[in-house]
Simulated assay, not measured.
Amino acid sequence: MRTTRELLHKLEVDCIADAPASTSQIKLSPRGKEVFDLFMRSFTHREIAERLGMSVSGVRRHCEKMLWKNGCNTMLALIAKYKLHRKQESTLNDL
């Protein structure tokens, strides 16, 4: 079985190969940004719910909406898309 880090690297490589010249920005609501930030820091759904004062099902709903808005099937794919966008932004700023 692969580790999460190995899967994330594979997704980044696949996204770079398939990505158009410019990737659109990740679409998140203000509350979605809070959920996404905690998810990227390896918090569980339950920990995110406790930290933000919401239900676990509410956290899951936010995750589902983020995935739908950004055309991803998993949170890991959304994180890879986010990292790809950040990498492209930094490359453009260096020019």
Rank of each mutant, 00 (worst) to 15 (best):
R46Q: 12
I26L: 13
S24G: 12
H85P: 02
L52W: 04
L95E: 12
G71Y: 10
R41S: 11
R51Y: 14
A80S: 13
I16K: 00
L84S: 03
T23Q: 09
L78Y: 07
T91V: 05
G58R: 12
A77N: 06
L38K: 13
K83S: 06
Q25N: 15
T91D: 15
C15Q: 14
M75S: 10
R61M: 14
L28K: 12
I79M: 11
A17C: 09
C63F: 10
L7T: 04
K83E: 12
K83W: 00
C15M: 11
R5V: 01
M1N: 01
R86T: 14
S90R: 15
K27I: 00
V35Y: 08
G53Q: 12
K81Y: 05
G32S: 07
I16T: 09
E34Y: 04
L52C: 03
T3F: 13
K69S: 11
G53H: 09
G32W: 06
I79V: 13
A19R: 00
S29V: 07
K27T: 03
K27F: 00
Q25P: 03
E34W: 03
A17P: 01
E6R: 06
P30I: 05
A49R: 09
T3K: 06
L78M: 08
D37H: 09
R31M: 03
I79T: 13
I16Y: 01
A77G: 07
M40T: 01
R51M: 14
I16P: 00
K69N: 03
M1C: 07
V59A: 03
E12R: 05
V35Q: 05
N73F: 06
G53D: 03
G32P: 00
C63S: 11
N93G: 10
